[in-house]
């Protein structure tokens, strides 16, 4: 029994059917962690990218250093750090929030590079026109550069959305009851790992396929308005 739902081990099919609702509860946690982690990644990544594009080294250099540090250390270490070390200093977050935060921080390093590539692809003449029209730099960024960069970066962002989704099982090590963790608990208690793990694989495939087609749909239906896209 898990989440108050009993399983039926009389046959493989009955077992599969009986644990599906349990796995779906785990899947809902996976989706929530993905969405929250991705949201943190795209917001924090934008902040990092904006800092990196500042011409002052004292601003851009730390942003580069942070990005590099995050990218070059394992997600698991960052997760352990947030989960075990921060509470020693009085910062206690629930496991789910800690996990989503770790995913978001890790992926912000990647998304910041995507933003940066998108930002740098905006023609120099656009900056010059904005300057000639006396826009402030922040307005140039939000009203001229970003709207032209975003349509270019959607495919790459979509790939990271799928990646985050596939990294959510890492959160099981800090007790988050996402889908894989749930499947493992079922396996531990019934000694049948084949069926729950196969089902998790199948459910994952469905989730990633849905996510990537949603991204593709968005990419194809976003107005390009003559932006020179590669």
């Amino acid at each position: 029994m898990l989440f108050g739902i009993e399983w039926d081990t009389s046959s493989n099919l009955a077992f599969a059917i009986s644990i599906l609702p349990i796995l779906l509860i785990g899947m809902w946690v996976t989706i929530q962690a993905t969405v929250l982690g991705f949201f943190i990644a795209i917001v924090l990544g934008l902040v990092l990218a904006a800092l990196k594009s500042v011409p002052l080294k004292i601003v851009s250099w730390p942003a580069y250093a942070i990005t590099e540090f995050i990218r070059d250390t394992p997600l698991l270490i960052q997760l352990f750090f947030l989960y075990y070390v921060l509470p020693e200093y009085g910062l206690v977050f629930p496991a789910f929030l800690t996990g989503a935060l770790a995913l978001g921080i890790q992926y912000s390093a990647y998304t910041s590079e995507v933003y940066r590539a998108g930002i740098e692809a905006v023609a120099k003449g656009q900056h010059e026109a904005a300057r000639a029209l006396n826009f402030k730099s922040l307005r140039t960024f939000t009203h001229v550069v970003l709207p032209q960069a975003v349509p270019r970066i959607i495919p790459a962002m979509g790939n990271y959305l799928v990646s985050i989704m596939k990294d959510v099982p890492v959160l099981s090590v800090v007790t988050v009851l996402e889908m894989l963790n749930v499947a493992q608990i079922i396996g531990d208690r019934t000694f049948n790992y084949l069926i729950p793990l196969s089902m998790v694989g199948g459910l994952y495939l469905i989730m990633t396929l849905v996510a990537s087609s949603a991204v593709r749909y968005l990419d194809m239906n976003l107005p390009k308005r003559g932006l020179p896209l590669k």
Binding site: R139, H143, L227
Partner: peptide, 29 residues
């Protein structure tokens, strides 16, 4: 800069804005 306006060789219009917004964005903002 307020005293000057510039016309560029490559036009440098904002491609994501309509013609009207290209003309109103800076005066308004």
């Amino acid at each position: 800069r307020e005293k000057m306006g510039m016309v560029f060789q490559q036009f440098n219009l904002f491609p994501h804005m309509t013609v009207r917004r290209n003309l109103t964005e800076a005066p308004v903002k």
